[in-house]
Write a protein that binds this DNA or RNA. Structure first.
Length: 498
DNA sequence: ATGTCC
């Protein structure tokens, strides 16, 4: 990829937690969210990816968030806006990777006892497996997903029929950012047609459909939380609208579109890269990870359809996981009930109105943040307050539920998607000590399904979550409503019973 | 992220 001017401290601060990054031309500079301490965590490669993305054809706006780090083509932790082009790389391989939060009726006291927590871990892991690939045939054993139902999931998303077939409370669909994605022409029919064309080439399609109700690996997780709503009147009032219960037990999940999303995304990368080569089209920043398609072309249509298929899988995957987690709670603690607080993505491109015209907003490791009164929230439970923003931090610092403020217009109505990596996986394995990581979890009384917590996922491998949140708040983008404190974590790792 | 290389 192209290396431009030296990128050491290239930012021009224009506030405590905001800066701009000029790219040398007349175009609007990159908007940077982050305190000086946070901006120093951006390495040169990440900044170069941001510059290449900003200068790519049809891109009118680029926002770099405080959790930014190197990604595929564009940094993870950025927002890329284009009224004319779609960019598969800056959506990423895990199409519609998302967060969801389930509020249970249980008080914090219910998850103090270690035996109870162990029983919950076992009941949850039995229903919602972690880890990659094989061995997940009918991940959700009580709700087998065959190829036909899988096709409906991809085309319809969390439709009433799909929810009923999978035992998902249909009202949860009203608590989703996009319960169903449609095709390039805004029709479901386009998705059915696209799927029909893809199926003969889809490798082990039935196996991928049977992954519904599973977490996967890497940074994906499920986490039992105790909710701590802020003391201020606004937090209390917003928490009530969100359905958050102070001192109650909730369950936070992070996962995406699993194998099918990966297959659809990489298929698109390869197809577009081949066309760029065939037609000798210059690559933005000489980076093949930044291939694109102009809207209205067959290539753009195909990408938007594939993205929607993957997104629909991710949506139903999350809802099913929540239904199964609730079932697990009910097995261990009879009488428990639960309500979905929200489901929101951080890897998706959405058609939104930006500066009074439609544009595709690519959020790559970035979370939509519409404040109260935003036109797109009209008719939803969150029209007055703004929708819930779910930000994973780390099990020890906690995670956050936030709500957008009007200042979020600066970041194209987006915030970060978590803490962001501080150390790469290899660096984390070199720098951190397994015994110390495990001891820190013991001292915090946070249980896990893993015998040893995955070291490349340790809290110290991520940026300081409080500093990241300080950036978001100081920039005027969003306010904290509640903190979620982990009681146990479900992750892919060496299982305690191995 | 991903049956971590079809």
């Amino acid at each position: 990829m192209t290396q431009l001017a030296p990128t050491k401290h290239p930012f021009i601060a224009d506030g405590e937690a905001t800066a701009i990054l000029p790219t040398g031309g007349k175009q609007k500079p990159i908007t940077v969210i982050g305190t000086e301490a946070i901006r120093e965590t951006f390495d040169d490669f990440c900044v170069q990816q941001a510059i290449n993305s900003r200068l790519a054809p049809g891109v009118t706006d680029l926002v770099l968030n405080p959790d930014a780090h190197c990604g595929y083509g564009a940094p993870v932790g950025c927002v890329m806006v284009s009224p004319t082009h779609v960019y598969p790389g800056p959506v990423g391989v895990d199409i519609k990777c998302s967060m969801s939060l389930l509020q249970t009726s249980l008080p914090a006291d219910a998850v103090v006892d270690k035996q109870t927590r162990r029983a919950l871990i076992d009941a949850i892991c039995e229903r919602t497996p972690t880890g990659a690939g094989r061995g997940q045939r009918n991940a959700a054993k009580s709700r087998p997903v065959d190829e036909a139902l899988g096709q409906r999931v991809l085309v319809e998303g969390a439709s009433k029929g799909v929810c009923e077939a999978l035992g998902i409370p249909p009202e949860w669909a009203t608590r989703c950012e996009d319960s169903a994605h449609v095709g390039h022409d805004d029709s479901t029919a386009a998705l059915a047609l696209r799927l029909e064309r893809l199926l003969p080439h889809a490798h082990r399609f039935a196996d991928k459909m049977s992954q519904l109700g599973s977490y996967g690996g890497g940074n994906h997780f499920g986490e039992c939380e105790v909710v701590e709503v802020g003391d201020d009147p606004r937090s209390q009032s917003v928490a009530e609208t969100f359905g958050l219960v102070d001192g109650g037990v909730a369950f936070l999940s992070h996962c995406g579109s699993r194998g099918i999303g990966h297959q659809l995304a990489t298929g698109q990368f390869k197809a577009l890269q081949a066309k760029f080569e065939q037609w000798n089209i210059p690559l933005p920043g000489q980076d093949r990870e930044l291939v694109y398609a102009p809207l209205g072309t067959a290539e753009a249509d195909a990408y938007l359809d594939d993205m929607a298929l993957g997104a629909n899988f991710a949506t139903v995957n999350h809802l099913l996981i929540n239904a199964l987690v609730l079932e697990a709670f009910q097995q261990v603690i009879p009488g428990a009930t639960g309500q979905l607080v929200y489901f929101i993505s951080h890897n998706i491109a959405r058609k939104e109105i930006v500066d009074n015209r439609p544009a595709w907003v690519h959020r790559k490791g970035a979370t939509r943040a519409y404040p109260g009164g935003h036109h797109a929230l009209a008719g939803t439970p969150f029209a007055q307050t703004g929708h819930p923003i779910l930000l994973p931090g780390n099990p020890q610092a906690g995670s956050a539920v936030m709500v957008a403020d009007p200042g979020a217009v600066l970041s194209r109505y987006s915030v970060n998607h978590g803490a962001g990596r501080q150390l790469g996986r290899k660096a984390a394995k070199r720098a951190l000590n397994q015994a110390q990581v495990d001891q820190s979890f013991n001292e915090a009384d946070i249980l896990s399904n893993c015998r040893h917590y995955p070291i490349d996922e340790a809290p110290a491998a991520y940026k300081d979550f409080d500093e990241v949140l300080r950036s978001v708040k100081s920039a005027g983008l969003a306010s904290e409503v509640a903190r979620l404190k982990a009681r146990f974590v479900i992750k892919d790792g060496d299982k305690a019973d191995d």
